[in-house]
């Protein structure tokens, strides 16, 4: 066979059709290529423009800022000269989001493990839809529900869960007792946790579904119980994916606006600061939303936009971190 093939090269008549191609049939390809490249470029342009807008609008106010923008808790953007710092906002934003993540991830992983490893198919499919449905509930609904239904139950000054935590851990500044009823960071975190639960669950479920059958059977054949199989085969395989899911959930929690705005009660002034989760406060997003009606002068507006810029950078970093984990997962 080999000698026959080498001794008879392809006939010259056949080659031109390979080179010229179908000249007329390629306009579809061109349109497709322009559309896809355009869409891709648009994404980059949008991100860059958003960042540029935030910088452009905030830099003049930042240059006039009378206090340290990062370390100060003062917020008097209307004063002359303006004085505004994000320390308190950053603290409340990160604290509420991280607490939400700590509460949501174990539950999400549990739900995802149940859906993929334990539940019979007939139950797993509708339950999966239900979890996805949770993600579709508008955040204002969560906010209302949190403020008026969940709040009195878990976060009021004489509510059981809050009292229990205050009694047990009150000696730590993070959990010290305060007089703020309901509208505290603790309640905001619980509601945020419920809000990010669906996305963390959905991604974890996808990852756990990808665990190779061979890995699971390897554990089972060694005499592993269901839980041991999960511990030995499923969790190690899914770990990078769960971390990625957590980062994406954290990104959502950091930027969540309306539910947090409804729930958190604002301290009378930002100088009035308390580390406790049972204290009120404002996040970047809720601060901006609460004051949206007061963007009267470029100087004031610039201060709020500067706060938005920090939120933009923080969420950007969290998402970048998630990407790093996703790309690591590709190596496994």
């Amino acid at each position: 066979m080999t000698t026959a093939a080498t001794s008879s090269p392809p006939s010259p008549a056949a080659t031109p059709s390979l080179i010229s191609g179908r000249g007329t049939g390629r306009s579809g390809d061109r349109i497709f290529s322009v559309l896809t490249r355009g869409s891709g470029a648009l994404v980059v342009v949008l991100v860059v423009l958003t960042g540029a807008f935030l910088l452009w609008k905030s830099v003049p106010s930042l240059l006039d800022d009378d206090v340290n923008f990062i370390t100060s808790r003062v917020w008097q953007p209307a004063a002359n000269p303006p004085a505004f710092g994000i320390a308190a906002l950053l603290y409340t934003t990160v604290l509420s989001s991280v607490l939400a993540l700590l509460m949501a991830v174990p539950v999400s992983v549990g739900v995802a493990l149940f859906l993929t490893q334990c539940a019979p198919r007939r139950l797993a499919t509708p339950l999966g839809y239900l979890v996805d449905l949770l993600a579709a509930v508008p955040s204002i609904i969560y906010g209302l529900w949190g403020a008026f239904v969940l709040g009195p139950v878990i976060a009021g000054t004489d509510s059981g869960p809050r009292r229990a935590i205050e009694d047990a851990l009150g000696w730590i500044p993070l959990f010290s007792s305060t007089s703020v009823a309901r509208g505290n960071v603790f309640l905001a975190s619980v509601v945020l946790a419920i809000m990010i639960l669906p996305i963390v669950t959905a991604i974890s479920r996808e990852v756990f579904l990808q665990v190779p059958r061979a890995n699971i059977e390897a554990a089972l054949a060694l005499g592993a119980t269901r839980w041991e199989t999960i511990r030995v085969s499923v969790l190690p395989f899914g770990k990078p994916g769960v971390i990625t899911a957590s980062m994406l959930g954290l990104g959502r929690a950091l930027g969540e606006t309306i539910a947090v705005t409804i729930i958190l009660s604002q301290p009378s002034s930002l100088e009035d600061f308390n580390f406790s989760v049972f204290y009120g406060g404002e996040t970047f997003a809720s601060k901006i939303a609460n004051n949206a009606s007061e963007f009267s002068t470029p100087q004031k507006t610039g201060a709020y936009i500067a706060a938005g810029l920090v939120l933009f950078v923080v969420t950007f970093l969290v998402n970048a971190l998630a990407r790093v984990f996703i790309s690591r997962r590709g190596d496994v």
Partner: peptide, 8 residues
């Protein structure tokens, strides 16, 4: 098993 399946 048919294919080697060490815990990765």
């Amino acid at each position: 098993f048919q294919r080697p399946n060490p815990f990765p």
